[in-house]
Simulated scan of single mutants.
Amino acid sequence: MLDHNQLDEAPTVNFDTATLRMAKDSDDPELRDESYNQENSTNAATARSNVPSIPFKNIDVHTFFSDRNEVVERAVKECHDILSTDQNDEIIGTWLLTEISLWDTEKERIVLLTKNAIYTIKYDFISLKILQFNRTPLTEIDTIAEGELEYPPKSAVPRLNGLAEGVSSMIHCAVRQQWSSIASRSDIKFESRKRNMSGIRIMWSKGKPLSFDKKWNPFAKHIPWLTYTSHPLYWHKGINEERSRFDVNGLHSALVSIISETCMFVKHPLIIENYLGLGALLHNRTSLGFFKVRGKISF
C-alpha cells in the first residue's frame, strides 16, 4: 500500500504522467484493492470521530449495591422462587435494566421474562427483598419498538443535560486537579447533550394515543407501554457473559424468539416527551432510581 508520508516527501512528481498511468491501469486488480483499502481506512477514521460519548463514564460503579458479588444472582433467584408459581410457565431469561418512566425518570428494575409474561420488579438491593412488581401477559403485547432514545425537537432537556454535564466535569476536575488546569481541558463542554443510548419500548396500546388525563398526570398508573435501556453497569463490565445481564439487547432478542408471530417489531427512535423536566434531570443526575451508597447513608 502507498504511504502518504512518502508521497509528501517526494522531491518532484509528474502529475500528467501519473494521471495517464492511473487511467491506463484502472482495471488492475491491485490498484482496485488499494483504492478500496484507502477508502475503508478513511471511512473508519470518520466513523471513529463520530462515535458518541459513552454514557455514565464518570460514575463510581462500586457505589451500586447491584455491583456487589452475587447480589444480582441472589435477587434473581428470589424473584424466580416467588413469582414463578406456575410450573408450566417456563423462564426464558432475567436482566437487570433501567426502566424509563413516562416522565423520563430512570429506575433500576429486574426484568423477568417467561413464556407467558414479562415481570418488571422493583427490588431492594440493600434489604434484599421485592418491593413491588408488575406482570404483563405476552398475549397483550402488540408492538415492540427498538431505537435510539431521543427528545422532541423543541425540548430543552438536551441543553440542560449539556449544562449539567459541563458543571459536573468542572467539579470532577477541581476535586482531582488544580483550578488552573480546568481552562486547558478540552473535554469540558456545555453543548447540547443527547442520551447516546438505545432501548426498546414494549407496547400494548393497540395503536391508541395516551389519554390526556394520563399523559399529563405524574401520578398516572397503568401506562400501556414499558421503556427499557441498559443498566449503567453495562458500560463498566469487561466480560461479555457478565455484561449480558445488563444489556437491553438481550431482552429484545429473547422477545423476538418467543412472540415474533403475534407481535409487530419495528425500528425507529423512541421519543421521550420531556420538554423541560427539571425534576427528571435532578432525579437522573443523582441516580435516585438506583440503590446506591450515598455517603453515610444508603438508599
Rank of each mutant, 00 (worst) to 15 (best):
L2W: 06
A10D: 02
T17R: 10
A18Y: 11
T19V: 10
M22D: 12
M22G: 06
E30W: 04
E34F: 05
N40V: 13
S41P: 00
A44H: 11
A47H: 04
V51P: 01
I54V: 15
P55E: 06
I59F: 05
F65P: 00
D67I: 00
N69Y: 10
E70A: 09
V72H: 00
E73R: 15
E78M: 14
D81P: 01
L83E: 03
T85P: 00
N88H: 07
E90G: 09
I91Q: 11
T94C: 13
W95Y: 08
L96Q: 02
W103Y: 09
D104Y: 09
K107A: 08
E108K: 05
K129Q: 15
L131A: 05
R135H: 04
T139E: 11
T143W: 02
A145V: 10
L149D: 01
H172Y: 13
Q177I: 00
Q178H: 14
A183N: 13
S184E: 12
R185G: 01
R185N: 14
S186M: 09
D187N: 08
I188R: 03
K189L: 09
F190A: 12
E191P: 03
R195T: 12
R195S: 08
M203N: 04
K208I: 07
F212I: 09
A220R: 07
L226G: 01
T229N: 08
S230Q: 11
W235I: 01
S244D: 05
R245V: 14
G250P: 06
L251T: 04
L255D: 05
I259V: 11
T262V: 04
C263G: 11
I272H: 12
N274D: 10
L281I: 13
H283R: 03
G295N: 07
K296W: 08
